[in-house]
């Protein structure tokens, strides 16, 4: 694969990752642009022969972490997430909203491993390198994050259920 086509594929991956991180297409593209500008400035530090993808993802990760403005954008723009699921599948859409909402409540250290693995584009080792943490730490954060995510989603569902029961009881 030529460098250009390899890079093109990685940029598409960056856009996917950024979209889940920011939950806003415009903010996601801003993040990818900022990442590419930084990558251009750092091009001389890239080691030819090493994998380009973790290098790019690490720049995006660091950019995202250091950019507090983006965190605010994410919170404000949550309702703007594109609807990737068929419109007639309302239950799945609701679940998607719940899971992404729960994901937002996790600390970044747990959120990012979950998203990186969900992209299915790199190994655990590559993802750990991207986040600049040892593999053991990465696995631990991934496991704890997933369990925390389950806990939050379960809590949300219980809350909805009790709300429904209260409504039914009131009627």
């Amino acid at each position: 694969m030529s460098l250009k086509s390899e890079l093109h594929s990685h940029v598409a991956s960056l856009r996917r990752y950024a979209l889940v991180l920011t939950r806003d297409p415009v903010a996601a593209d801003d993040l990818v642009q900022e990442t590419l500008v930084k990558a251009i400035a750092k091009a001389d530090t890239f080691q030819p022969g090493t994998d380009l993808r973790p290098w790019l993802f690490r720049i995006l990760h660091n950019t995202h972490i250091s950019d507090l403005r983006r965190a605010r954008t994410r919170a404000d723009a949550a309702p703007d997430l594109p609807e990737p699921i068929a419109r007639d599948c309302q239950h799945t859409q609701l679940e998607l909203k719940q899971v992404l909402g729960a994901l937002d409540q996790l600390p970044e250290a747990q959120r990012m491993p979950i998203i990186l693995v969900a992209l299915r584009e790199m190994s655990y080792a590559e993802a750990a390198r991207t986040l600049d943490v040892p593999l053991g730490t990465f696995m631990s954060r991934l496991g704890r994050g997933r369990e925390a995510l389950r806990g939050i989603v379960r809590g949300v569902k219980r809350g909805e259920l009790s709300l429904l029961k209260r409504k039914e009881g009131g009627e």
Binding site: Q33, P82, L100, L103, I114, I115
Partner: peptide, 26 residues
């Protein structure tokens, strides 16, 4: 579910600024 949300990025229109930066980086 998260993967499905990420794949929504593929449906986004081409961003010319990103395309230009991608060329420059290459």
């Amino acid at each position: 579910l998260i993967n499905t949300a990420a794949r929504a990025g593929d449906a986004q229109p081409t961003n010319l600024r990103i395309a230009a930066l991608e060329r420059e980086l290459a």
